[in-house]
């Protein structure tokens, strides 16, 4: 459904993406792992045109797009299909939770207000915030804020949702509630591309794991393949640090 070829991105002199190819099918839950600086976040942001890639092609269903020469109209089209969940939620501070979720629908997609509110409330219900429709971001906890962010993405009914380290800025106690929501929408068949350090999510929910380092994809496969039998030395090194070597549980 989404195919990316040869994406390159440099910030000034440092090359962050050195030619990445990626293929995602409908319903896939893809997790991208890797050390910081490996280009995972940049990759995500390039897909959504929050950063402008220097080179590369994307094929989205029937739409063919060149990252370098994409027109505003094409970018707008892509953004209709691709939703983004930020590490720092980036909720609109001057809007209530419901308004946050419906703003894109009402103004961006010209959906009438009643219909948009319906969709928005459903999305907020799905993430477990039915009692917080009229709360402002300043009144919500970190986990709640991130869940509103997810609701905002879900309400757009996109073809794929990009998650940029959604739980990295959260208290350990609040991570759980966000992961639960993500697991729920994954089980509903949402196509997701997730950059995260939460190995449990990668192992339990993902059907494809990608390991990135130094701006390239070093290894990719099913969670079993990557976690049980990593092939690349760097992958083994990374996983050793992040997952205990042996774990016993009775």
């Amino acid at each position: 459904m989404l195919e990316i070829k040869n994406i390159h991105k440099a910030f000034g002199k440092s090359e962050v993406l050195k030619g990445v190819d990626l293929k995602i099918n409908k319903g896939d839950v893809v997790v991208i792992l890797g050390p910081s600086g490996s280009g995972k976040t940049t990759l995500l942001r390039c897909i959504n045109f929050l950063e402008k890639a220097d080179e590369g092609h994307a094929r989205f269903g029937e739409i063919d797009i060149n990252f370098k020469t994409a027109s505003r109209k094409q970018i707008h089209e892509i953004r209709q299909k691709v939703a983004f969940v930020f590490q720092n939620h980036n909720l609109f501070n001057n809007k209530t939770a419901l308004e946050n979720v419906t703003l894109g629908l009402i103004i961006g997609r010209k959906i009438p207000k009643e219909k948009a509110n319906e969709i928005g409330k459903k999305a907020l219900d799905k993430v477990g915030l039915s009692d917080k429709y009229d709360y402002y971001p300043g009144q919500l906890s970190g986990g709640q804020l991130q869940r509103v962010g997810i609701a905002r993405a879900v309400a757009l009914n996109p073809e794929i949702i990009l998650f940029d380290e959604p739980t990295s800025a959260l208290d350990p106690e609040l991570i759980g509630e966000v992961l639960t929501v993500m697991k729920k929408i994954a089980n509903e068949g949402t196509t997701m591309l997730v950059v995260t350090h939460e190995m449990s999510f990668a192992q339990d929910v993902a059907n494809k794991v990608i390991f990135m380092d130094g701006g390239v994809i070093l290894e990719e496969g099913t969670p079993n393949e990557i976690f049980r039998s990593p092939k690349h030395e760097r992958t083994k090194q990374f996983l050793k640090r992040v997952i205990p070597e042996f774990s016993y549980s009775i």
């Binding site: 959504n48 929050l50 707008h76 953004r79 983004f84 930020f86 501070n93 894109g104 961006g108 757009l156």
Partner: peptide, 12 residues
Amino acid sequence: GQLEAAQSVGLT
């Protein structure tokens, strides 16, 4: 991030 979030939900 406010502008980025707005762009990502499809606002001009």
